[in-house]
C-alpha cells in the first residue's frame, strides 16, 4: 500500500510508547503565532524536546471553545494573515525534516469548509498531516467530511467529554480512529484541572469501551498535573500552558524558542517520571 508508512504514524507512535510503557506527550501550538517563521522554528524543535505528537492550531476568528490565552494566540496569527493554506505549508516544511512525529490539525469548521473539504483532505494528506480534530463538528454534523474519508488516510479525531453519556460514547467510538481526545473538564481551554479523582474514574470507564488510545486534554497546565494524569492516561495534551509561555516572551521573540522548548522538556520529564 502506497500510504502504509504515512498511514501508521499515529498508530505507530502509540504502539511504540505502549511497549515502552510511556504516556504520550501531545503539544499544541498555533500555526503562525507569533509569526510563520517562529512557529516553524518551535515546531521543528518540539520532537527533540519530548513531544510525541503535535497538534497544530488552525487560527479562527471566533474560537468558541477556547479561553483567553488561545484566543489571543489566534488573533496574533490572524493579524499576520495566516490561513489554512499556510498551515499546510508549515506541515510540508516540517515533514521534510521529520517523517515520524504525527501531526494533527485542530481547529473550527469554517476555515476547512471554505477551503473545500475535498481539497483540504487531498492537500493535507499530500503534505503529511495525520489527523484532523474539528472542535465544532460533532458526529451528527460531519457528513461532509465523512463521505470523503474512505478516499483519504487522514484520521478524524473525535472528542468525548464529561457530559458524554455511555450511549453517545459508543456511537462516537464506532467512528473514531487514531485516538480519542477526552476533554477533562466542562469548560474552555486554559481552565485549571482540579478534580483528579473524578477524571481518573471517568477515564477508566472510557477505557473499558475503547479499543483506541485515549488522551486527556484541557486543564493540564503544569508538569505536576501532567504527571498525575499520565500515571494512567495514554497521553496528555498541553496547549494553553505552552502558548502562555510564548505569550510571556513575545516582546523578545528571540527567546521564544528557548523558553517554549524548556517548558516542553519539563512536561516531558514529568510524564516520564509518572510510571517509574
Amino acid at each position: 500500500m502506497a500510504y502504509s508508512n504515512y498511514n501508521c504514524r499515529i498508530e505507530k507512535t502509540f504502539r511504540d510508547l505502549k511497549s515502552a510503557n510511556k504516556p504520550a506527550l501531545i503539544t499544541f501550538i498555533t500555526a503562525g503565532d507569533p509569526n510563520f517563521n517562529y512557529s516553524k522554528q518551535v515546531l521543528l524543535n518540539l520532537p527533540k524536546a519530548g513531544a510525541d505528537l503535535i497538534e497544530i492550531g488552525v487560527p479562527f476568528s471566533d474560537p468558541m471553545a477556547d479561553g483567553p490565552i488561545i484566543q489571543k494566540s489566534y488573533r496574533r496569527a490572524l493579524k499576520n494573515g495566516v490561513n489554512l493554506d499556510e498551515v499546510l505549508s508549515l506541515v510540508k516544511i516540517f515533514r521534510k525534516k521529520n517523517n515520524y512525529t504525527p501531526i494533527v490539525l485542530m481547529g473550527y469548521y469554517n476555515p476547512f469548509f471554505q477551503k473545500g473539504i475535498k481539497s483540504f483532505l487531498k492537500e493535507a494528506e499530500k503534505v503529511g498531516v495525520d489527523g484532523v480534530l474539528i472542535v465544532d463538528l460533532p458526529p451528527e454534523n460531519d457528513d461532509e467530511i465523512r463521505k470523503h474519508l474512505s478516499d483519504y488516510k487522514l484520521k478524524v479525531i473525535r472528542l468525548a467529554s464529561p457530559t458524554t453519556d455511555r450511549q453517545r460514547l459508543t456511537k462516537i467510538l464506532k467512528i473514531s480512529s487514531g485516538f480519542l481526545y477526552y476533554v477533562s473538564i466542562t469548560g474552555i481551554t486554559g481552565s485549571g484541572l482540579s478534580k483528579f479523582n473524578t477524571l481518573k474514574n471517568a477515564y477508566n470507564k472510557l477505557k473499558r469501551y475503547s479499543k483506541i488510545p485515549i488522551v486527556v486534554g484541557f486543564g493540564i497546565n503544569t508538569p505536576e498535573k501532567a504527571k498525575i494524569v499520565s500515571k494512567y492516561a495514554d497521553g496528555v495534551v498541553v496547549g494553553s500552558a505552552i502558548i502562555n509561555e510564548l505569550d510571556k516572551t513575545i516582546d523578545k521573540k528571540s527567546n521564544i524558542n528557548n523558553n517554549v522548548i524548556r517548558l516542553v522538556k519539563k512536561f516531558s520529564e514529568a510524564i516520564k517520571e509518572a510510571r517509574k
Binding site: M64, P138, T163, T164, V183, G187
Partner: peptide, 12 residues
Amino acid sequence: GGRFVAETLMPL
C-alpha cells in the same frame, strides 16, 4: 442550520 458545537455541549 444543524448543530455545530463542541462535544461538551452536544448532550445538552
